[in-house]
Nucleic acid binder design. Structure first.
Ligand code: FES
Ligand code: FES
Lengths: 153, 153
DNA sequence: GATATTAAAGATAAAGGACTCTTAAAACCT
DNA sequence: AGGTTTTAAGAGTCCTTTATCTTTAATATC
């Protein structure tokens, strides 16, 4: 698995917030229902992202969670690093120490290329661009197929 | 982490076997010492690979483990699938069901490309080619730097 | 100021991965 | 052939991750 479950949920929450037209605080239980995750579990993950300065939170009525910075200044690799650590973007694919050209493992050349592409996937687009695409191209963030959303019987 | 610890050890064992000039059975404790892993733990991993038809084993003196098929017929993606399952090469990077063009997530296009490259890394070269490169280019499979190996004081 | 609402903090529990120890089998030696 | 050594196989333990539940603290609204 490329990302931990916590990281998947953190990213999907960020994408959801970025795709919302009004940038208000949104209650965690609302996000939890959409993702199909316990709100308590999600609270822990988002609490960590808040401490990392990626999100901000507000207690009480009309409270919830929101992005801490402008979506044009936020990219997904920050969330990956905050939750799973930077290992995915730096470490040897075979788990050996000091990955680099100095003492390359048999997969180093190919992995350093693939790793670069993985990093690009998380870092090239800002949350602003991702949010816009989610709305315009009807990209999904939730488990349910959008057919059940578009169908208005 | 891209691969589980078990998968890392399984791959490194396969690379070690492929890089050995004589294709005899090699005791697991020898491989364990080289990799810096408990032989008991490694046994469990290799036992699984034996059941999957990737390796073969022999008990008793002069026993050990060896590749089940010709190195020219074996590729690393088989080991990844046997230990970690096929999820890495098929599943959505955000953990949502039914990854595909039908209901793409915001990262689908980029991830399906990166995923293809990761699969190529494990599937393009055979163990025969990898074994030859390890010997010829002195590529490392062990944690220790080769400086401690090349230096003959 | 009372109340409703929401995140934060803490305790608890189930699951999976990482690692260790014990047991059974095979080959060798005498 | 029988004991001994060497090794794989299998059972068992520990720890991290994932997830749930309960309690507490904060804040807006009335
Ligand atoms: S040394 Fe293995 S990927 Fe760099
Ligand atoms: S749907 Fe997410 S990667 Fe394919």
């Amino acid at each position: 698995m490329l990302l931990s479950k916590s990281c998947e949920y953190g990213i999907r929450t960020a994408l959801y917030l970025a795709s919302q037209p009004q940038k208000e605080f949104i209650p965690i239980h609302v996000i939890g229902e959409m993702l199909g995750v316990s709100p308590h579990f999600l609270t822990k993950i988002l609490q960590h992202l808040t401490q990392e300065g990626i999100m901000q939170s507000l207690r009480g009525p009309r409270g919830g969670v929101a992005l801490a910075r402008s979506p044009s200044e936020l990219r997904l690799h920050e969330i990956v690093i905050a939750i799973d650590g930077p290992g995915l973007f730096t470490e040897c694919v075979l788990g050996m120490p000091d990955c680099g050209e100095g003492q390359p493992c048999p997969l180093h050349e190919r992995w350093s290329q693939a790793r670069e592409q993985v990093f690009a996937m998380f870092s090239e687009l800002t949350l602003e661009e991702l949010g816009r695409r989610i709305v315009e191209e009807n990209l999904r963030i939730t488990d349910v197929t959008s057919s059940s959303l578009t169908r208005n019987t």
